[in-house]
Amino acid sequence: MKFIFVLFALVLSLFGNEKVLYVYNWSEYMPDSVLKNFTKETGIKVKYSTYDSNEAMYAKVKTIGTSSYDIIVPSTYFVNKMSREKLLVKLDKSKLPNYKNLDTKLLSKPFDPNNDYSIPYLWGSTGISYNADLVKEPIDSWKNLWNPEYKNSVLLNDDMREVFGVALKVLGYSSNSTNPKEIEEAYLKLKELLPNVKMFYSESQKQVYLNEEVKLGMNFNGEGFMANEENEAIKYIYPKEGTLLWIDSLVIPKGAKNIDNAHIFINYLLKPEVSKIISEEIGYPSPNAKTLELLDEKTRNNRTIYPNEDDLLNSEFQIDVGEVLPTYEKYWEKLKTN
């Protein structure tokens, strides 16, 4: 009997104290080598799962509870939404010595003024990708998507705020409009676009362009970069009305079971040499100021990844639209069921 008890205690010590971390992130958004090296360096095993939209992530977290994950990577205004709903843990920056490496221009944004809940992971833009072998007119504007010759040939993100942001930009409004009349106008403008829309899709968009399933449409700049790496005919541009900007942030959900491991993971990702690997492989700009000094010239000078000031004229970061969100949701539902 004593032997059985000792054996049971040994099993508990081996498995009950397993160093583990549950990460819930966007698809194709972290190199496998980074996860493997993290485990090799720390002994912490990463259990990794993915989502394809903020809405899908939020719905799952609300359904199964935040305790199922230790790290989540929401975009911009979703950080504010989740912190306001008390779904996030306040970070202990004393456990994040590499926080000092971050570019201060990407800190203290309105969605988390003191970065109490979020640490920038990657930032980027949503612009237009097009296949130059299939599209002959110059593409420089969101308005190009409405050209009747692109019937059933356009990709739109499966993202309510970004899709409405495009229409609002075309109409000359802010992509963060809180005016119900402007939001309704954007809905009507998007209804005009529907004959051209082949799909609403946000997961691995590069493959859709590489397969020539669409001729042009919305795209994340990193997906545009990776598609261009495989086919030079696929171009990425910053529309003249202004592109849509975002920051994807590392957060710890309330109820996380491995909070210390989560801090260790965040601090690891903030190492300049690790951030360099992520930026070069995934194709998104790093928020790590120290990383810029390490990047290869091809990555550092690629405007799809690192835009210049002219590229970002009239661009906006998404912010929380507060009480008008249900108005967006109402028109989004109508748009998707048309």
Results as ranks from 00 to 15, higher is better:
121 Y>V: 09
121 Y>N: 10
121 Y>E: 02
121 Y>S: 04
122 L>W: 07
122 L>E: 07
122 L>A: 06
122 L>P: 11
122 L>Y: 05
123 W>F: 15
124 G>R: 01
124 G>E: 01
125 S>W: 05
126 T>I: 15
127 G>C: 03
127 G>H: 05
127 G>I: 02
128 I>L: 06
128 I>S: 07
128 I>K: 00
129 S>M: 12
129 S>T: 11
130 Y>V: 03
130 Y>S: 02
133 D>T: 12
133 D>E: 14
134 L>W: 10
135 V>Y: 10
136 K>N: 13
138 P>R: 09
138 P>K: 13
138 P>I: 07
138 P>D: 12
138 P>Y: 08
139 I>L: 06
139 I>H: 04
140 D>H: 14
140 D>A: 15
140 D>P: 06
141 S>W: 09
141 S>F: 09
142 W>H: 00
142 W>S: 01
143 K>W: 08
144 N>G: 14
144 N>S: 14
145 L>V: 11
145 L>G: 04
145 L>P: 11
145 L>M: 11
146 W>E: 02
146 W>M: 04
146 W>A: 01
147 N>L: 08
148 P>V: 05
148 P>T: 04
149 E>K: 15
149 E>T: 14
150 Y>T: 05
151 K>R: 07
151 K>N: 01
153 S>A: 13
153 S>W: 11
153 S>K: 12
154 V>G: 03
156 L>M: 14
156 L>Q: 03
157 N>G: 13
158 D>N: 14
159 D>M: 10
159 D>G: 11
159 D>C: 11
159 D>T: 14
159 D>R: 07
160 M>C: 13
161 R>H: 13
162 E>P: 04
163 V>P: 02
164 F>Y: 00
164 F>C: 00
165 G>E: 02
165 G>M: 01
166 V>S: 02
166 V>Q: 01
167 A>C: 10
167 A>P: 09
167 A>G: 07
168 L>P: 06
169 K>W: 06
170 V>S: 00
171 L>Q: 04
171 L>Y: 05
171 L>G: 05
172 G>L: 04
172 G>C: 05
172 G>W: 04
174 S>T: 13
174 S>E: 00
176 N>E: 05
176 N>S: 12
176 N>C: 08
177 S>V: 11
177 S>Q: 07
178 T>W: 03
178 T>D: 10
180 P>S: 06
180 P>W: 08
180 P>H: 03
180 P>Q: 04
180 P>M: 03
180 P>L: 02
182 E>H: 13
182 E>D: 14
182 E>P: 10
183 I>Q: 00
183 I>C: 02
184 E>H: 14
184 E>V: 13
184 E>S: 12
184 E>A: 12
